[in-house]
Amino acid sequence: MSQPLVGIVMGSASDLPIMQAAAEVLREFGVPYEMRILSAHRTPEATLRYAREAVGRGLEVLIAGAGGAAHLPGVLASVTPLPVIGVPIGTKSLGGVDSLYSIVQMPRGIPVATVAIDGAANAALLAIQILAVRDRELREKLMAYRERLAQEVEAKDQELKDIKY
Rank of each mutant, 00 (worst) to 15 (best):
A66S: 13
D157N: 07
R136L: 14
A46K: 06
G96K: 04
E53T: 14
R49P: 01
L59I: 15
V61H: 13
I128V: 10
E137L: 06
E53L: 06
A54L: 00
R57Y: 03
E24D: 15
A69S: 15
A23P: 03
A66G: 06
G68H: 12
L82P: 09
S12E: 14
E53N: 13
I117G: 07
P81D: 09
Q105F: 06
I8P: 11
V112Q: 07
R49A: 13
A54D: 07
M106R: 11
A51C: 04
N122R: 15
Y165H: 07
P32R: 12
E154H: 01
I117W: 04
N122W: 10
Q20L: 07
A124D: 07
E152L: 05
E34Q: 14
A54Q: 07
A66K: 04
A54G: 08
S12D: 08
L26F: 07
G119N: 05
A70V: 01
Q105A: 04
G95D: 11
G109I: 09
L160H: 02
A123K: 08
V6I: 15
V104R: 00
I110D: 00
A40W: 00
A150E: 10
G56V: 08
L142K: 00
Q3V: 12
G95S: 07
R136F: 09
E159F: 14
V153N: 03
V31S: 10
R57G: 03
M10S: 02
M106P: 05
L100A: 00
H71L: 01
L76K: 10
V104Y: 01
S78T: 03
L94S: 12
S93P: 02
A77T: 13
L48N: 01
A21R: 15
P44M: 02
G68Q: 05
V79C: 04
V55Q: 08
T47H: 02
E152Q: 08
V55D: 05
M35G: 09
K161S: 11
E159Y: 14
I117K: 00
L5D: 14
K141F: 03
Y145L: 12
R139G: 02
Q158T: 13
R36F: 10
V25I: 08
